[in-house]
């Protein structure tokens, strides 16, 4: 229940992020009793690298406090969309935070926005979008995989997002979006193998007042080319295709040996030679703060194509109303 708004104290049923270090973060459902493989009800104890954690000991603690493990410690954090993306159970390849940020920005999401998304996948983006458009907005999300859609539905419900997210199993490439979204959406997001097939349906879903946004996420450039062509043919404007990668740096204390001892060696003066010998006896070292890129950064995620849809035939509609006005006059 902890996903729909920030809270301070952990209660039973909340999802909690257990933070040991940036490489070891786990999303845990705070339940005091779980069923084991034999179906018996047992106390929920989590095993980590640094020892066991009794889940029931978390209740009543504040999010952000330190908890003791049997051989160390960890922090319990609030499951923000960013942390959830890092820890969620993968059912598919997911969209990561840098892309999520950009997608939400390019779709111009704000509280109250109505968004249509396909496919749901593991719900990484859906959670982030739901957090962004709440409390008055809504996400309609579709996935053609029945089991995945079902799991997603369950997840949204248990996370308290069912008021904000409507999840359905539907093949939007063939059947389009459900009727409830026609003419309602402020933005459409497509992450599926053939986004170009869905563009006509997307136009139907977008608000008729114009200015609706569409964004597609495709890992392959061929998909992008097809999508762009279809978008252009359907009168979308402001087409841009971008690729954004986040480079992360690590800041470390490092020591290097320097050449200061060697420089004085060629000198003929015996005293300075002695001095140099003394210096070179212990190699000179320099300490500094190094900023190095992380070891294996992501080289490619996907291309983001975004476009704006203007009104459908604004002239004809407006000339009609103008004609009426004239008649009245």
């Amino acid at each position: 229940m902890s996903f729909n708004c920030y809270k301070d104290i952990i209660e039973e049923g909340d999802t909690v992020i257990l933070y040991i270090n940036p490489q070891a973060m786990y999303a845990i459902q705070a339940l005091s009793i779980i069923e084991n493989r034999k179906g018996e009800k047992v106390e929920n104890i989590m095993q980590t690298k640094y020892g066991a954690l009794k889940i029931s000991s978390l209740f009543g603690k504040r999010f952000g406090s330190k908890v003791n493990l049997s051989n160390g410690w960890a922090y319990v954090l609030y499951p923000t969309p960013e942390l959830w993306t890092q820890t969620l159970p993968h059912r598919t390849q997911i969209i990561y935070t840098p892309d999520i940020g950009l997608i939400m920005f390019m779709l111009e999401l704000k509280p109250g926005s109505i968004v249509v998304e396909s496919g749901t996948g593991s719900g990484s983006l859906t959670h982030a979008m739901a957090f962004r458009v709440k409390p008055s907005g809504h996400i309609y999300t579709y996935d053609f995989h029945e089991q995945r859609a079902e799991q997603a539905q369950k997840e949204f419900k248990s996370h308290g997002l069912s008021d904000i997210v409507t999840s359905q199993c539907r093949d939007v490439c063939q059947n389009g979006f459900s009727d409830e979204v026609v003419g309602k959406a402020d933005a459409v997001f497509l992450d599926l193998p053939h986004p170009h097939l869905v563009v006509p349906f997307a136009i139907k879903a977008l608000k008729s007042t114009g200015g609706g946004r569409i964004c597609t996420f495709s890992p392959c450039i061929e998909q992008v080319m097809r999508t762009c062509q279809v978008l252009k043919d359907h009168g979308f404007i402001q087409l841009t295709t971008i690729e954004c990668l986040e480079k992360e740096y690590q800041v470390l204390n490092r020591t290097v040996t320097t050449f200061t001892g060697i420089r004085q060696l060629p000198s003929t003066d015996s005293q300075s030679q002695n001095a140099a010998a003394e210096e070179s006896a212990g190699p000179a070292e320099k300490k500094f703060v190094a900023c190095v890129p992380s070891a294996c950064p992501r080289g490619h995620t996907g291309y983001l194509t975004t476009a704006t849809y203007l009104m459908e035939n604004p002239l004809s509609r407006r000339s009609d109303t103008e004609g009426e006005n004239k008649c009245e006059n």
């Binding site: 992008v224 087409l239 295709t241 971008i242 703060v289």
Partner: peptide, 29 residues
């Protein structure tokens, strides 16, 4: 930010520190 990172790393009341920048490329399609 590197100086700041180095200093904040020593603090125990801050976690999940990240220093990043973006690589952004537009494509002609």
């Amino acid at each position: 930010l590197v100086t700041m990172y180095a200093e904040f790393k020593m603090r125990r009341d801050l976690v999940f520190l990240r220093l990043t920048d973006n690589f952004l490329r537009h494509h002609q399609v």
